[in-house]
Amino acid sequence: MTVDELRAKAAERQQTCSQIKKMIVSRLDLEVEPDWITDDQPLFGRGLELDSLDVLELYVAIEAEFGVALYDSEMAVFGSISRLADEVDPRLRASA
């Protein structure tokens, strides 16, 4: 791939990550600016410090926004924003 093709591929993932961050900040009413959240930071415990109630809220929000049901998923899908992007947009995972 050329560097421009790689940039385009990166932009696709970053776009999905950005959409997820905005959704999380909005749904959970966080004070932080969405872009302040990094793609790789942990979400639960450390990092964004979400809890199990937040997970329930996110299940609903993700299904509404992306049409993907994660109710039976393992906690690993919430390992980071980028990991969540793999779940809500399987094309990203397939091309990784």
């Binding site: 790689l6 990166a10 980028s82 990203l92 990784a96």
Partner: peptide, 19 residues
């Protein structure tokens, strides 16, 4: 971003999703 094929010291590497 994760999922990119890059090169480090002549070797192909892939960027990753955390964790």
């Amino acid at each position: 971003a994760a999922g990119l094929e890059l090169t480090v010291e002549g070797a192909g590497v892939t960027t990753l999703t955390s964790p």
